[in-house]
């Protein structure tokens, strides 16, 4: 099975989000409901933790539906005051990512609630908050959004991992179904349809000319920034 260690980078939305998390004792712990990123001083996005539980999952249903569901959840679980914060698994504990996410320690007692000040920290954000936010760029169609985040390194390998580039374009996050990678032939018909639907999607490297504005909830790309087509 293609472990991500052999890869030179991976897509967070495709390879990590929504995967099953399994402890070292083979116990099913939960799904990767979201991923926490820290914004470094130099603007780099670095993943720090896997987030789990309904408080991480529900916001990903979108602002309207997700908000309503989150409110309903708080009503039901009012008894526990910290129930609106997700459970945290540190990124260092990830040992292997294949068709599931394996941790280096047994699941029991590993999860802890996110602290309130951590949740309020403006330097931290979630992948779920970045996916789907509008992208303003004169060279892209107007309805472009952030479709996925591409990382360097591998979550299970040594060395640094950080968000290296964004996949942007019209459509919905997740609707590429993995057909942006070259390795996947797929049924030709399906691949052709997906490629056609995403013919305007591009890869843009983070750095000069790309600004992620968390306050406004949008990404601004200066005209003339190099936009690479999807499949190399």
């Amino acid at each position: 099975m293609g472990s991500l260690a052999e890869r030179n980078g991976y897509d967070v939305g495709l390879h990590l989000l929504d995967r099953q998390v399994i402890g070292a004792d083979d116990r099913l712990i939960g799904k990767v409901d979201d991923i926490e990123l820290v914004i470094d001083d130099d603007g780099a996005l670095v993943p720090t933790a896997l987030l789990m539980g309904l408080p991480a999952l529900l916001p990903r249903f979108g602002p309207r539906l997700g908000g309503a569901l989150a409110r309903a959840h708080r009503l039901v679980r009012e008894a526990a005051a910290d129930q609106d914060l997700p459970l945290v698994v540190d990124f260092d504990l990830v040992e292997d990512v294949s068709s599931d996410v394996r941790l280096s320690e047994p699941g029991h007692g590993l999860l802890h609630r996110m602290a309130h000040d951590r949740a309020a920290d403006p330097r931290r954000c979630r992948v779920g908050d970045l996916l789907g936010i509008p992208v303003r760029c004169p060279d892209l169609p107007r309805r472009s959004k952030v479709l996925d985040l591409r990382m360097v390194g591998s979550p299970d390998g040594p060395g640094e991992h950080r968000v290296e580039s964004l996949i942007v374009g019209p459509g919905r996050p997740g609707a590429l179904f993995g057909y942006d990678r070259r390795s996947e032939p797929g049924p030709l018909a399906v691949a052709a349809v997906v490629h056609w639907l995403h013919r305007h999607a591009r890869i843009v490297e983070l750095g000069e000319g790309v600004e992620i504005d968390h306050e406004a909830g949008e990404v601004r790309i200066v005209a003339g920034t190099s936009l690479a087509p999807l499949r190399g």
Partner: peptide, 19 residues
């Protein structure tokens, strides 16, 4: 091969909303 059952795949590929 991958020890993933059908509904794992549904959520992994369709995402939380469609899933």
């Amino acid at each position: 091969v991958s020890r993933r059952a059908t509904f794992d795949l549904v959520r992994e590929r369709l995402g939380p909303r469609m899933g």
